[in-house]
Amino acid sequence: MRLNYPANLKIIRVPCTGKVDVIHLLKAIERGADGACVIGCMEGECLYNRGNFRARKRVMQARKVLRSVGIEEERLQMYNLSSSEGPKFALYANDMTEKIKALGPNPLKAAKAKLKAA
């Protein structure tokens, strides 16, 4: 297939998206990631029945936290695809990158640098 997708995307493998917790998503942003997305199986096709539904809920919970601290919630996204959909993965990777580029860098990085300089 040899599809291209943006090189800025770092992939972290988990056994099921149901393993992804709110704190993992928050820590990513807290430590300076510009965004994080969870890419799970198609809804209704989870091997563990509800793993991807749990993941979606947790992404929503984490987005709510970001909103409350004044950071754009769009930095966290949830996508679904089936394991054989390589082109869709590349599409999501591009979509995520475009979304984050439009938002600009994580504001916490600038805030941290400003505090250090002071």
Partner: peptide, 9 residues
């Protein structure tokens, strides 16, 4: 995590 981000922000 939320409080750290809030105050930093």
């Amino acid at each position: 995590s939320a409080l750290r981000m809030y105050f930093l922000n």
